[in-house]
Design a protein around this nucleic acid. Structure first.
Lengths: 231, 231
DNA sequence: CGCGGCTTTGATGTTCATCAAGTAAAGTGG
DNA sequence: CCACTTTACTTGATGAACATCAAAGCCGCG
């Protein structure tokens, strides 16, 4: 973990408006001085399940996965998160240790605010407290909603769902470098690696997508959307 | 819905300490005067997915299920909740409408506090705000953790998990009146009614449990626990 | 250049959904 | 309170969806 080259303060952070907009100058300063920033590279584990929670984290750049490891040693990915998603709000106020792990899928710039400083601001600024409530609520809503959706689909629908998620929500492009392995897609949709691959290959054979190496292109959005709908 | 016969104020409520302990007398009064109470009977829908959220709800007595209906009209039960679980904290601060429905599994005494009154107290009492943060966090943690656990198990482990949940967490007894139908167990563990029944029958045949009509008795905790562990 | 992880395809078997059909229990209206 | 209807429960048979096991090619990396 190395320190970011372009440290900025919270006031000029592009994600400021998403959370810290209500803060007074002195509150900004309190958060900013309790803040460190560092870059992690693809594959690095940012937080490990079971570690004590000492800080509030968010991303300024990059992409991460939230995941839990089951008793057989298999990972289950809860969500993939980008800047603005406030990755560790989940359980930050209900547990003293992480209930899941966080790892980087790309080079990621993490902003780390000491929890005590955040708590102090929550205590004195009720608008900020409500904003945090809103954010916490949103992130868990999304995970629960996503699980609900996946549960209704079988494997083709699930894979299509993930491909559309990456294209539309993460990259906003038809063509992108796949940030996760086939195995990770499987961990995200609760299917085996083999069957995930088979499904992706079938989509390729059908001309819905194409890929070489790590770059994937979606050719037929409508068909993909239809597959997610019909299950 | 009829009004409870034994309306009490929040100060003397046995669940007070779980949430409202930090409130000053005037804050209690604000909450209490924005509060109504009513009894719903088994099967009644307390809130329907899509309805606007106007109030904070909690249970003083009874048992409810939180569930979502999928596009095929099938229900998926997210959780079963008892008094003290603060059933609608989920999404109360992130959405203007319910993202799930709430229905009573037993005769249930619901306490209803206008959201505006709760928000006012949150704004002026930061300890209370933090307590709400903690509760919100907990309820979503539990749902996510539960889904994670279920996902690792196959049907026997899932059914065993639910039976143990009811015996240990809800009733704290070996013998209890089953609050949910076989179909609802299926909706809770994402399995069909038929296979849920088959599994329960098998447990009966194996002497792990017994039941007649709606009353169920768990005879062999160890075996049941072992089944949840091995999947 | 060889080792380990990722990807791929095939063959086989298990788990579970679906369909069908019948019994039991619980509401409902006369 | 009884006939009627609906909902819950149950068992069996069949097939679909998916996991598992096996084997081989590929790629990046030390």
């Amino acid at each position: 973990m190395r320190v970011s080259n372009d440290i900025i303060n919270c006031k000029s952070c592009i994600y400021r408006f998403m959370l810290f907009n209500e803060l007074s100058d002195s509150e900004y300063e309190a958060v900013n001085s309790a803040r460190t920033e560092y870059i992690v590279k693809r594959g690095d584990v940012i937080r490990q399940e079971g570690q004590p929670i000492h800080s509030f984290l968010y991303l300024r750049k990059g992409l991460v996965k939230l995941y839990k490891t089951d008793k057989n040693g298999k990972d289950q990915i809860l969500s993939i998160n980008k800047p603005g998603d406030f990755i560790n709000l989940l359980s930050i106020f209900s547990n003293s240790t992480y209930k899941y792990s966080i790892a980087a899928l790309e080079e990621t710039l993490v902003c780390n605010v000491e929890l005590s400083a955040l708590l102090a601001v929550i205590r004195e600024n009720s608008d900020f407290a409500l904003k945090i409530l809103n954010r916490i609520s949103k992130i868990s809503d999304e995970i629960i909603e996503n699980r609900f959706e996946l549960n209704q689909k079988q494997i083709k629908g699930r894979v299509a769902h993930i491909l559309l998620f990456l294209a539309e929500k993460i990259y906003r492009k038809d063509t992108f470098r796949m940030p996760i392995t086939r195995r990770e897609i499987g961990e995200l949709i609760s299917m085996t690696t083999e069957n995930t691959i088979r499904t992706i290959s079938e989509f390729k054979k059908d001309g819905i997508i194409s890929f070489d190496a790590k770059t994937i292109t979606i050719h037929d959005y409508n068909r993909l959307k239809n597959i997610t709908k019909t299950g």
